[in-house]
């Protein structure tokens, strides 16, 4: 079943178009990875799914309902949550308060969800009363992902979740992303560590200049010589 779908999106941030007809699809239970050279519009394509880009033409649907021009605060209510690449925590709020803000629109008791995030990222439990701004980069990324999990989303959008992390944390974050996916959350992520990301992806897209270039399963993209030579550094 297709959850989130973008059809031939054109648009950008007000100037010229960055997206030139990109189409994406996330099915239930999938891990989908977007790769491509710098400036290909990978992050912009992801933001367009979340109402953060001026989409000039094309449409975005979630479970066959159009969400193209909904604002982000409406889209999270549908079950799509987004983790930006940068500035993705509230630095002066504690870890626990960051998670509470992720659950802002929930009016029920979400303590079980907090426990689930703590199980996924045990260091956060210890540091629950510490300001998020004082944590290490890897731990901040855990808070950022944890915040987005608080609404128990159907689709989680991750913009370069391992950017700037040490190798130890890169492995850990990828591992956790697979665990999150195993609980039934579909995942769409943009990644610089293309090989690593594609190796655990069900499907992958290669974008060039805001349009689709290749679309295939993760292993097939990795095995595709053209893709490997052009975009994965040989």
């Amino acid at each position: 079943m297709t959850l989130l779908k973008a059809e031939e999106l054109y648009g950008g941030y007000g100037g010229g178009d960055i997206l030139n007809g990109v189409s994406l699809r996330v099915d239930a239970g999938e891990v989908v990875v977007i790769v491509g050279p710098n400036g290909a519009g990978k992050s912009t394509a992801m933001k367009a799914l979340f109402g953060l880009v001026n989409v000039r033409s094309g449409r975005v649907t979630f479970r066959d309902e159009e969400i193209t021009r909904l604002s982000p605060d409406r889209i999270v209510g549908r079950g799509v949550c987004y983790v930006p690449q940068e500035a993705n925590v509230f630095p002066s709020l504690t870890v626990l308060e960051n998670l509470e803000m992720g659950a802002f629109i929930r009016r029920d008791d979400y303590s079980a969800q907090i426990e689930r995030v703590f199980e996924l990222f045990p260091p956060l439990k210890e540091k629950r009363s510490q300001a998020a701004g004082t944590l290490s980069g890897g731990q901040r990324q855990m808070v950022a992902i944890g915040r987005a999990l608080m609404l128990d989303p159907k689709v989680l959008l991750l913009d370069e979740p391992t950017a700037g992390l040490s190798p130890k944390f890169i492995d850990l974050i990828f591992e956790r992303i697979q665990e999150i996916n195993a609980t039934g959350v579909s995942i769409l992520m943009v990644e610089q560590n293309a090989r690593h990301a594609l190796s655990l992806a069900d499907r992958g897209y290669v974008l060039v200049l805001g349009a689709n270039r290749y679309e295939d399963t993760g292993p097939n993209l990795l095995a595709n010589r053209e893709v490997a030579e052009m975009f994965l550094g040989g």
Binding site: P72, D73, F90, E100, M101, F104, I105, R147
Partner: peptide, 24 residues
């Protein structure tokens, strides 16, 4: 309070507040 924390959150990072679903 929920809105008190949201106020601090928005002061910290208004974009993230919006995409967390906080009614800014």
């Amino acid at each position: 309070t929920r809105f008190g924390k949201a106020m601090r959150a928005m002061s910290d990072n208004p974009d993230l507040a919006r995409l967390s679903g906080i009614n800014t």
